[in-house]
């Protein structure tokens, strides 16, 4: 008799736990306000990344097409993966030969977004942008030249 009562009890208890689980899912299907989906390409305008989000490395340029990079290659040394390569050239300024950057090469496909280059930059020339849509159809497009054509070093940065 005892066994039969336990048997029936176990069934009722089992059903009770099942109903409890169903009440949780039942709550969510009756409360569509809880839906957490964001429709991504549609909400592109309103989508705001956080300030510190590490998207990709960019060399900031002013409106006068000036940047702050002196070509010291501190970032190149700080980078763990060889993502950054600085090709510098000697340019004659006021009769003196001076080292300036020719090309700031940045290979996005190798970048791990570790932020070490930004920290190492003595002149705050590079920053991490908030852009995260990196997909391209050609791998060669991922190797970027960060300094814009015709740009030059900002006055007073050394």
């Amino acid at each position: 008799m005892r066994a039969i009562i336990d048997y029936i009890k176990s069934i009722i208890e089992g059903i009770r736990t099942l109903l409890k689980g169903m009440s949780v899912t039942g709550y969510y299907i009756t409360h569509p306000r809880e839906i957490i989906t964001q429709q991504y390409p549609e909400n592109r305008e309103t989508l705001e990344m956080f300030d510190r989000f590490r998207g990709e490395v960019v060399l900031t340029h002013t409106e006068a097409n000036e940047h702050r990079c002196t070509g010291c290659s501190a970032c190149e040394l700080a980078c763990p993966n060889g993502t950054i390569e600085i090709i510098s050239k000697r340019e004659e300024v006021d009769g003196k030969k001076k080292k300036v950057i020719d090309k700031f090469m940045y290979n996005l496909s190798m970048c791990t977004f570790c932020n070490l280059c930004i920290l190492s930059c003595p002149t705050d020339a590079i920053v991490m942008s908030k852009d995260f849509e990196h997909a391209v159809f050609d791998r060669s497009l991922l190797t970027k030249v960060l300094n814009k054509p015709g740009s030059k070093l900002m006055e007073g940065v050394r």
Binding site: M49, R52, F53, L119
Partner: peptide
């Protein structure tokens, strides 16, 4: 993401302290 800059591979520590 707000504090460290990334969601999964945060790399928030540097030897001697924190990155920011």
């Amino acid at each position: 993401e707000e504090t460290c800059g990334a969601r999964l591979t945060m790399n928030y520590n540097v030897p001697g302290g924190l990155m920011f």
